[in-house]
Amino acid sequence: MNILAIETATPGCAMAVRTSEGVELELVLGDERHHTEALTPGIRDLLYKVKISAASIDRVVVDRGPGLYTGLRVGIATALGFSVASGAELVGVTSLEVLAHGAFNSGVRGTLVSVVDGRRGEVFIQIFSLDASVLALSDPKVALPREVALEWNQRGDVVTFTGDGAARYADEFAGVTHGLIFNQQVPSPLAALALGALRAPQVAIVPLYLREADAVANFTTRQPPS
């Protein structure tokens, strides 16, 4: 099975491919937020290097967030394009779990908090246990960096923070007594691919925004024209 992975949840634009012969290759482009221009040519180059055609992609694994909205839009639309054009299967993974697996693959063990930059002073976080395998200990949620740091200071446990949110708010997270930072700005597309290779294909990929829940209620505060 030829598998393509698309990673656009952060300012980096990244992709990976695994051919049915087991050849793996990834391409991680800079953190310039130019997903629209960079993604498709990047995929073309990647496929050229492993000598398979776009039509022969059997499955596309795509990061569905949470993360950079403009990036997710491009990534998911591109994945859908493959599925429409050549019937490729689709699998969604989350940025937070891909970060956890990336850290795990690099040898990080113990408690890990994946931290994705949510913009405007907020981060998306999820807690994992990295032991024999990667286990989620909480659901993804929106949080303030300072509050996350405070919480872990109070817990006093050894913990590793990773992701572009951990880097952006390094000041906060470096202050946690038993806190470490594992530098990982872009979720690894190869980790996403490995994760997505094991899952059942999905009919639809829905972006994970995390900022929806309390949304609609606010509209009732809008006063009708007087």
């Binding site: 405007r120 907020e122 900022r211 809008r222």
Partner: peptide, 14 residues
């Protein structure tokens, strides 16, 4: 304009 009706989209730093 009318941004506060959608403030959850914009996050804290506004």
């Amino acid at each position: 304009e009318w941004g506060e009706i959608a403030s959850s989209v914009f996050g804290r730093d506004v």
